[in-house]
Amino acid sequence: MINKKSQFLLGLTIISVTFLLLVSFFIITSSYFHSKEIGEFTAQCYERGGEVLLEIHNSLTSSYSFECKMDK
């Protein structure tokens, strides 16, 4: 028979693991979609003859600033 303290610890462990899995999923998903966007924006910029100015702000999530500088 499981006592109340063991039940509490089991519940806390399940909640913690679930939270960590969700956070990991959101970080991986964000990083994936930012990488896809960067690739598409870069390709479009080069097709138009522009120069890519890219700054990665966070390497974990790949948050970024992007600019396509066109020569006039």
Rank of each mutant, 00 (worst) to 15 (best):
S63L: 09
E67R: 14
R48A: 12
S30D: 09
H34Y: 05
R48F: 02
L21D: 03
S24V: 05
L21R: 02
G39C: 02
L20E: 07
T18R: 00
G49Q: 09
E40G: 01
L10A: 13
L22M: 12
T13F: 11
S65F: 10
L53F: 13
S35K: 14
H34N: 15
Q44L: 11
V52L: 05
E67S: 14
I27T: 12
C45N: 03
C45Y: 03
T42C: 00
Q7L: 14
T61P: 01
Q7T: 05
I56L: 12
G50W: 02
K36H: 08
Y64W: 08
I38H: 01
S24W: 09
S16L: 13
F41M: 15
N3P: 06
S62H: 14
Q44G: 02
L12F: 14
R48S: 11
F33Y: 15
K4D: 09
Y64S: 04
I28T: 05
K4M: 07
L20P: 01
G11K: 06
F25R: 04
S24F: 11
L22R: 08
E51P: 00
F26E: 06
L53V: 15
F41H: 10
L12S: 12
F19K: 04
V52P: 01
V23E: 12
I2K: 13
I15G: 00
A43P: 00
S63M: 08
Y32N: 11
H34I: 01
L22F: 13
I2C: 04
M70F: 15
I28C: 01
M70T: 10
E51T: 13
S6H: 10
I27K: 11
M1I: 08
F8W: 12
S16V: 04
